[in-house]
Each structure stands twice: as C-alpha cells, then as structure tokens.
C-alpha cells in the first residue's frame, strides 16, 4: 500500500488475520489489534504489550489521527496526482474550421499579448474569436478581410517574445 503521512509518502504491507493485523513496515513485522470505544480507538501492539488510545477525524479522502503528542494526516495517494496535461503551444493563428474572415485586429509588426483576439472568423453563424496563445509580435498576415479560408489554414504568423 502507498499512502502519504504528513505529506511524506511511505510504503507498507498489511495482512489481516481474524481481528488482528500484521504490519510490515521498513524492516519489521508487528502484530496489532484495534478496539473501538465510542469515538476513540485503542490500538494494542501485541508484541510489545503496549496500548495507546487514538482520537480520529475522518473525511472523505483523508484521516487525521492523534496519538499522544503526535498528529498524523494520512491521505491516499491518488493516481491522477501525478498526471498533468502537456500542451504544445501553437504560436501561429490557424483557422480551426472553414469560414470567412470578418476582422483582422492587428497589422504586421504589431505587438500582441497572450489572449488578444487577432482574427474574427465567421463560420456556421458563429463569430469565432481567434486569440493569440503567446506574447509576441505579428510577423506576417496571410489573409485579408472577407477572405474565404479552409480548415487549418495558416492565417497569421506570430513570433513569440519573452515579456
């Protein structure tokens, strides 16, 4: 099993034998038993013959356990935590679909900011704002107002610039 305790991940193995547990963690293997008293839990370390009472808060994906002067925040490691989407940023403006160029908002050599609308393309009754995905400078404009364009045509070339 893989969990995170106080933000550090750790690995262990746990076997259940009747009402007792056998925990293998790091180099040792120890037997335990758990009893519940109301909202408190008593955990017995059978080998050491020591017992400790723990207080617990349970949330959906997280459990907080207090044991004497220690506090443990235990979370399951979710798989999607390691996933992140990688997006390749396209600098240039291409037509996402066929349509008619309604408006070109910049001229060559103009500076554009990320999110600026560069071209408005009308297609299937909808005015689509094609935005720059980078900060940069308009290098070349391949179309003019009123032009009919096909899908994935290069419309405007943008040279990305830092800041």
């Amino acid at each position: 099993m893989n969990i995170k305790v106080n933000n550090e991940s750790l690995e262990y193995e746990l076997l259940r034998k009747g009402d007792s547990y056998l925990l293998s963690y790091q180099d040792s293997s120890l037997p335990f038993q758990v009893f519940r008293y109301g909202n408190d839990y008593l955990v017995l370390n059978i080998e050491d013959n020591t017992a400790i009472v723990l207080d617990v808060y349970k949330a959906k994906n997280k459990i907080v356990i207090w044991a004497e002067d220690e506090e443990f925040i235990i979370e399951e490691i979710s798989e999607n935590e390691t996933l992140s989407s990688h997006e390749v940023i396209e600098n240039n403006i291409k037509s996402p679909m066929p349509g008619i160029i309604k408006e070109i908002k910049f001229m060559e050599n103009d500076i554009v900011k990320k999110g600026d609308t560069v071209v408005v393309l009308e297609s299937m009754k909808v005015l689509n704002e094609l935005k720059s995905s980078v900060n940069g400078c308009i290098k070349k404009i391949y179309i003019e107002k009123g032009a009919q364009v096909g899908p994935l045509e290069l419309l405007v070339e943008i040279e990305p610039k830092e800041d």
Binding site: L14, Y21, Y25, L30, F32, N45, V56, A67, E70, F72
Partner: peptide, 16 residues
C-alpha cells in the same frame, strides 16, 4: 519528525 506512533496510526487507518 521521526514519529513514535506511526505504526499504530497506519494500523488504525487500515482498520477504519
């Protein structure tokens, strides 16, 4: 830290 009661906490977590 080097917690003392980590094992008990793991067992209880599994129990819950």
């Amino acid at each position: 830290q080097n917690p003392i009661h980590l094992k008990e906490a793991i067992v209880l977590y599994e129990f819950l």
